[in-house]
Structures are given as C-alpha cells and as structure tokens.
C-alpha cells in the first residue's frame, strides 16, 4: 500500500475515532481532577492534623507512583480483589487520581500565597471560615494557580496516551494498531504526533486566552 492511500484511507479515519476517545478521556478527567485537587489542597491547608496528613500521604503516593503502574493496578490488579472495571473507566479513574495530586500542589501553593489580611478582613465582616475560603480565598487562589493548572491539563492530554497500555484505543492506540497492521511505523507515529502537537498547541493558546479573560489588575500571575 502506498503511503498516501494508507494515510487517507486507513490512518485518518482511525485517528479520528481515536481522537474522540482521547478527548473524552481528557474532558471526563479534568473537572474531577480539579475538584479533587482543590479538596486535597484545602484539606492540607485548613484541615486538622489527621486530614492534612492524609492529604499529604495521598499526594506522595500518587505523585511517586508511575501513572502506568497506577493504571495497571486499577485495570489488572483490582479484578483480583473482585472489582473489575472497564478499561476506559479504569483509565479515567487513574487519570483523575494522578491529575488531582499534581493540581493540589499548585492550588495549595496559591492558597498559601494569599495574604493573611484577606481572611482577617472577611472574618471581620462576619463571614465564617468556610464562607471566606469559598468567596474570598479560592477565587484569588484559582487565578494564581491557572498557569500551573493549565500546565497539568496539557500534561493530561499527553499522558492520556497511556490508556492504550490498558487496551483503550485512543489516538496512540489507533496509530499503533494501524502501524503494526500495515507496517507503516514512521508514517503512523509522525501523523499521530502531529495530532498531539496540534491538540497541545491549541490548548496552550486557549489557556492563554482564558488567563487574559480572568486577569484582574494587580493580581498579575507571576511566571
């Protein structure tokens, strides 16, 4: 088969299907990763001793454990304990657990960087701690965490490729299968590489726009 036919007839449709799966993985992971990451950060910053130790332990484990191993644990390991997850679900759960650990570090750093006076002033106005965290601290901290969080989001796009290692046929899987079947390795992997680069570049651009949109004078995100 000549490369042009391969690219247009075989690879392009396969990559399109794979792209949809990749996007689904990322889109399902990101919001929960952010939510869990925020919870971990707040637990570490404001929680009692036990809670903050637990949150720190979580972060040490999920940042230290390679994501591939985590996916293996969820997909190949859990069935031995009687819990069988579909590959896609296992991948999303693994990504959320990992994504949250990294997100929480950025969020906690941002929360810690908010001046004490903001909390004091909020409490002096009669807000409870919880109200102050929700209405005053988090809106500021999240803005400061945006560069780190968007970095993590871009990482997520890239490491979503590991889902292929537990049989989810996303972009990487689609390329690998086509490459192996038709013996077109360079073509397949360069092509899928371009798709990833496009995804990452577009996201970087979109994130930059988002940063500008939520920017507030004097709250300049230091890079």
């Amino acid at each position: 088969m000549d490369p042009i036919t391969f690219l247009t007839q075989i690879l392009a449709p396969a990559l399109w299907k794979g792209l949809i799966v990749t996007v689904a993985l990322v889109v399902l992971t990101a919001p929960f990763g952010l939510l869990l990451g925020t919870g971990l950060a707040l637990g570490r910053q404001y929680g009692g001793r036990a809670l903050s130790t637990a949150c720190s332990g979580y972060i040490v484990f999920f940042k230290g454990c390679p994501l591939l191993l985590l996916l293996f644990i969820l997909y190949f390991g859990l069935p031995s304990l009687g819990l069988t997850l579909p590959a896609f679900t296992a991948a999303v759960i693994g990504f959320i657990l990992c994504n949250a650990a990294y997100n929480s570090e950025y969020i906690q750093g941002a929360v810690a960087s908010i001046k004490d006076g903001q909390m004091t002033a909020a409490q002096a106005l009669g807000m409870t701690r919880a109200q102050a965290i929700k209405s005053i601290i988090l809106p500021q901290a999240m803005r400061r965490a945006i560069p780190g969080l968007s970095n993590e989001f871009i990482y997520l796009i890239k490491y979503s490729s590991l889902a292929y290692m537990i049989t989810v046929v996303e972009l990487t899987g689609a390329a690998k299968i086509a490459a192996t079947r038709y013996f077109m390795f360079n073509e397949s992997f360069f092509a899928v590489g371009i798709v990833y680069l496009a995804l990452v570049t577009l996201t970087t651009y979109a994130v930059g726009r988002l940063e500008q949109r939520v920017a507030i004078p004097g709250m300049g995100v230091k890079t």
């Binding site: 590991l162 690998k176 390795f185 992997f189 360069f190 990452v200």
Partner: peptide, 21 residues
C-alpha cells in the same frame, strides 16, 4: 515544541519502531 508537545509513549514508539530502524 516538538519534544514537549508529544507524549513519551508516542516518542518511544516513533523512535523504537520508526526513526532508529
């Protein structure tokens, strides 16, 4: 841009199956 934009897995496949051979 190239090496930061691509997943490690893709780079490994690309070099292992493609570029080096």
């Amino acid at each position: 841009w190239f090496f930061r934009g691509l997943p490690t897995l893709i780079l490994l496949f690309l070099f292992y199956f493609g570029v080096f051979p």
